[in-house]
Computed example of a mutant assay.
Amino acid sequence: MATNDIDTAIEQSHAALAAILKGDPSVYQALYSDAEDVTLGNPFGPYALGQQKVAATLAGAASHYRDGEVTGVELIARYASDHLACIVEVERGRARVGGGAELVSVAVRVTSVFRLELGTWKLVHRHADPITTPRPAASVING
């Protein structure tokens, strides 16, 4: 595995983040594998499994953002083998969120899993949630 190959996939995922903060899901969609085992978890709903559900979930997530930009990405950990790579990051940006008129800061913790398919690293799983600061134990109670 050439390190720069996975580096390119990571750079592309950061470009996809920039696009989604502007309301465009197409860049992320292009990074995903064509396989039916792809998954996506985002802050707006449950996990999506399969091409169609992932595409619809990406579109729904992108619809919540406008006029955004990436302000930073913090690499927490990176794991890679010959065929799988996992990246753990905190992504930060500014965007108009929902119907809001103001640009606001957003931050999500992200886990991205890439699989080497026919010589290209493809995204097979992405999970992003807004938990970037400590929370009390009661925050996990479903009530």
Rank of each mutant, 00 (worst) to 15 (best):
G23L: 02
D24Y: 02
D24P: 09
P25N: 01
P25W: 00
S26F: 02
S26K: 09
S26Q: 08
V27Y: 01
Q29W: 02
L31V: 12
S33F: 06
D34E: 14
D34K: 10
A35F: 00
E36P: 10
E36A: 14
D37E: 05
D37K: 12
V38D: 00
V38R: 10
V38M: 03
V38H: 03
L40D: 05
L40T: 10
L40Q: 08
L40H: 11
L40E: 03
G41A: 12
G41I: 14
P43E: 13
P43A: 05
F44Y: 12
G45E: 01
P46E: 01
P46Q: 04
Y47W: 14
Y47D: 10
L49G: 02
G50N: 12
Q51D: 05
K53L: 14
K53I: 04
V54Q: 10
A56N: 13
T57C: 01
T57L: 00
A59Q: 11
A59I: 11
G60R: 04
G60E: 10
G60W: 02
A62M: 03
S63L: 01
S63I: 01
H64V: 07
H64D: 09
H64K: 10
Y65D: 06
R66H: 15
R66M: 02
D67Y: 04
D67T: 15
D67V: 12
E69C: 03
V70I: 10
V70M: 13
G72W: 01
V73C: 04
V73S: 07
E74K: 15
L75G: 07
I76C: 01
I76G: 09
R78A: 14
A80Q: 12
A80E: 14
A80H: 07
D82T: 10
D82N: 14
H83F: 09
L84G: 04
L84Q: 05
A85I: 07
A85Q: 11
A85G: 15
C86M: 08
I87T: 15
V88F: 00
E89S: 13
E89G: 09
V90D: 01
V90R: 11
E91C: 06
R92H: 06
R92Y: 00
R94C: 02
R94W: 02
R94Q: 13
V97D: 09
V97M: 03
G98D: 11
G98V: 08
G98S: 09
G99V: 03
G100A: 09
G100Q: 11
G100M: 05
A101M: 07
A101W: 06
V104N: 11
S105Y: 00
S105D: 15
S105P: 12
S105Q: 07
S105L: 01
V106G: 06
V106K: 00
A107E: 12
A107N: 03
V108W: 05
V108D: 11
R109S: 06
R109D: 04
R109E: 04
V110M: 09
T111F: 00
S112C: 00
S112K: 08
S112L: 01
F114D: 07
F114A: 02
L116M: 11
L116T: 11
L116H: 13
L118I: 04
L118R: 14
L118A: 15
L118Y: 12
T120S: 15
T120M: 08
L123C: 10
V124F: 02
R126P: 10
R126M: 08
R126K: 11
H127P: 00
H127K: 09
